[in-house]
Nucleic acid binder design. Sequence first.
DNA 1: ACACACTTTCCGTGTAGCGGAAACCCGCAC
DNA 2: GTGCGGGTTTCCGCTACACGGAAAGTGTGT
Lengths: 269, 269
Amino acid sequence: MAKEGGTGGDGRRSVTVRATSLLNAFDTEHRALNLSQLSRRSGLPLATVHRLAADLVESRLLVRRLDGRYEIGALLWRLGRLAPPTELRELALPHLQDVVVTTGHTVHLAVLEGTRALVIERLAGTKTVPTRHSPGDDVPLYCTAVGKALLAYADPALIDRVAGELSPHTAYTITSPAVLHRQLDEIRRTGLARSAQEHRLGVSSLAVPVHGHDGVVAALGLLAPLRAPRLADALPHLRAASASVSADFLRSGLAVASSGADGSRNASG
Amino acid sequence: MAKEGGTGGDGRRSVTVRATSLLNAFDTEHRALNLSQLSRRSGLPLATVHRLAADLVESRLLVRRLDGRYEIGALLWRLGRLAPPTELRELALPHLQDVVVTTGHTVHLAVLEGTRALVIERLAGTKTVPTRHSPGDDVPLYCTAVGKALLAYADPALIDRVAGELSPHTAYTITSPAVLHRQLDEIRRTGLARSAQEHRLGVSSLAVPVHGHDGVVAALGLLAPLRAPRLADALPHLRAASASVSADFLRSGLAVASSGADGSRNASG
DNA sequence: ACACACTTTCCGTGTAGCGGAAACCCGCAC
DNA sequence: GTGCGGGTTTCCGCTACACGGAAAGTGTGT
């Protein structure tokens, strides 16, 4: 009978979770999916997907095109705009632009989301670097500057969890938990995070935390080609922008929304 | 068998639809809701909301704050970015900026969504007008310039439906279906839609359609104080922007409904 | 003509969603 | 202290609703 013993994985969950797994089948490379693709990518039986997707279309979370493919509906877009990242993004935007024009480097704004850093805005500078992270993408916490800036101020439990699985992206990626911890200490001391080719070859970056009422709510990062001349000169501008964003953030009375860990599941008792 | 008869719009439907009605309880003024508010605003029993919201949190569509209130989660934000409006918005953005700097007026980009026009981007000009529609808001189709521009090229059935319920917003709002139809004819002939105080007093606007492969995919509108001097001078810029957006749109290969095969093959894996 | 891939419908099974009611919690007033 | 009012969480029996295998329907390429 009970073939399901696994914790956490997928398998048999509530309708809502299943419906969400349908939504999760979409990503930047797959903005429109037909029924079979949806079934394959979500791992749900075809008949189930057929019914579920129809429900989602009725709810206007998805729309069905004339060619039969599904895509994310405008309702979802609109709802998504109500999420905390939107407010932060819009309030930070002018300051990000300042940084871009004064330094010429590409700037990232990211928040902690689960065990990754979610890039909520990216403004390309004139001194372009090949890497392409659009808003909506997420990057690892341990091998990017914004990631480390966020991680350094995160819940110690999260730090340990992340430090437990340091899979290398390049030859420069930190794979030793001890080294990572040492770096995080330094970040906390100096308020500055760095990464040099740890995530992508040829790219180095700086990042500083953005402070909220209690704790760090975001990180502001700067991307540059590996040996960009006087990248450090940009630091004051980055710090200034961070301070401005912090100030605006506090003024706006927004609350931290970072989800944190799941924790309580069906534990015994 | 007979379809269900409820006219109210909600009521007794599938789980998915109910869950969505929870999501719909959120709006710009209500970005964070506690359980009871959620229950009240969605019309669902409290116990049901309690369970459903927990599911949504587990799915990460919602997050629950430390103070017990729910808000839209980052996952939803990210999914929303995969919706068509995002692509259109980003591709149109530079052209919108052109219009703003050359004309100084506030510009709107809107798409058809149900029986309303969804504003997907708004750039404020130097010649500000009091009205405030942020991206994500929707406006009526029959009393705004962008709305009319979209309506004029929409499915006749939709036109009739909209013409059936012309509730006035100001003393200038068109309430006669015949007048509306006549205006729509003219819009189709001239490619230009206007509204003068029909939606908000003191505001007049122009709008032009943005064409896709077959049909209109968006509208580009310009807001100005009532008797803005030489507002018509801005029209060429607006048309030029519309043409540029159209061109970029077509180039990008975005589809509203592609009937033929589009190149992408899916290598299963 | 056949083969193949995708989509839609059907329908018997039983599970999972339902939601009223009661308990619980906390701050407040008296 | 006791009672009151708001919100939140848990309980639990009933059955409506979701489930999904299987089969029929549709369209394209060969």
